[in-house]
Design a protein around this nucleic acid. Sequence first.
DNA 1: GCGTGTGAACTCATTCACAGCT
DNA 2: AGCTGTGAATGAGTTCACACGC
Lengths: 209, 209
Amino acid sequence: MFKKHIPQSTVYRLSIYLRELERLEDRDRVYISSRELGNRSGIGDDQIRKDLSYFGKFGKSRFGYPIKGLKRNIRQILGVNNKTWHVAIIGVGNLGTALSSYKGFRERGFLIKALFDNDSKKIGRSVKDLKIYDVKHLIPVCKKEEIDIGVITVSVYHAQKVAELLAGADVKAVLNFAPTRINLPHRIKIRNVDLTIELENISFYLANQ
Amino acid sequence: MFKKHIPQSTVYRLSIYLRELERLEDRDRVYISSRELGNRSGIGDDQIRKDLSYFGKFGKSRFGYPIKGLKRNIRQILGVNNKTWHVAIIGVGNLGTALSSYKGFRERGFLIKALFDNDSKKIGRSVKDLKIYDVKHLIPVCKKEEIDIGVITVSVYHAQKVAELLAGADVKAVLNFAPTRINLPHRIKIRNVDLTIELENISFYLANQ
DNA sequence: GCGTGTGAACTCATTCACAGCT
DNA sequence: AGCTGTGAATGAGTTCACACGC
């Protein structure tokens, strides 16, 4: 899509820049320099300019970046501008329930359209106005709701099966919280959030400092 | 601590290797080759050998790595072998509650010793046998319980304040789930888990594929 | 012969340094 | 003069390729 390859970490930092821009208090300010944005976000000014330069020339010599324009541009790049993405959460345990009511989803245009579980005690109940479906019906329900992203919050033992169901329902991306690697066709984007690994990273640091 | 600098991503992958080793079914197998471990974990065999070589020579020509020994070695490196770490969770909302009952903590030797909140409706109640303390008493309670790691699951607006309290209680590391950068003395290790950014990364991919 | 361990080559990302614009 | 945008230099991390040990 873009001319050059974009480093993963650049995309990650774009989110940080956007977050800081949205947090700026002074509504009348027009420009912000890479230096100031850097101080606020804890990233070097040259790194910021380099990151932004992958996508275009948004700044103005002597002034900096126009705040409104830059916000719009970053939202555009990240794809959180106009489009809304449809999300399904599979596994309504502690974590799945927490995510169901996570405000950040909606704020960024991610609409949770369906919840699934395999526990008959949960199926049919509702969380935040959303009915919990039987995971058996995942494919038709996801197709009907045009789900783009599946969030996996089931146990390790069910994660791969659920992932395959999601693939069968033509989702485009999967956010996996189960501490296991899932295998899917290459067209489906997978991101893993693994608390076990986060903990072990901290532990490594504490044990070896 | 170690001779060379260890890449962050190497530490991350060590966790993956350990996970796969623990998942091996055949209890009588003695050796595993980097090739097979690679296939199971989705990482190249040369990468695995390189990662392990930072820490020592664990393998045996012609055979591969002794499974038991390698598990023990990786646990040792990651610091999840004998030591237990004391954890406090600050913010008993949806996410904090979910984490309080996350089994992965205990399995890896992370013991949750205290919960904190600032909501008088929650203070004094219990989650999983753990009383919820008033965040006002964070410093003395954390000192008494010898907390090593603080887990921040409060809102963006309170995250920095809570982080500073934790610093005052001499925690060694912080796992931050609030979507904001927190500033702390350099001696304290900070890891951020930011769902907003995960979502935006996915969105970038979907919008630009 | 087979699989580890590791320098060397390479690729990817960050930092530097400065030309160019206003 | 002040700040962006960007090649060039550096640094970090991965992949290659092969010597060595069993």
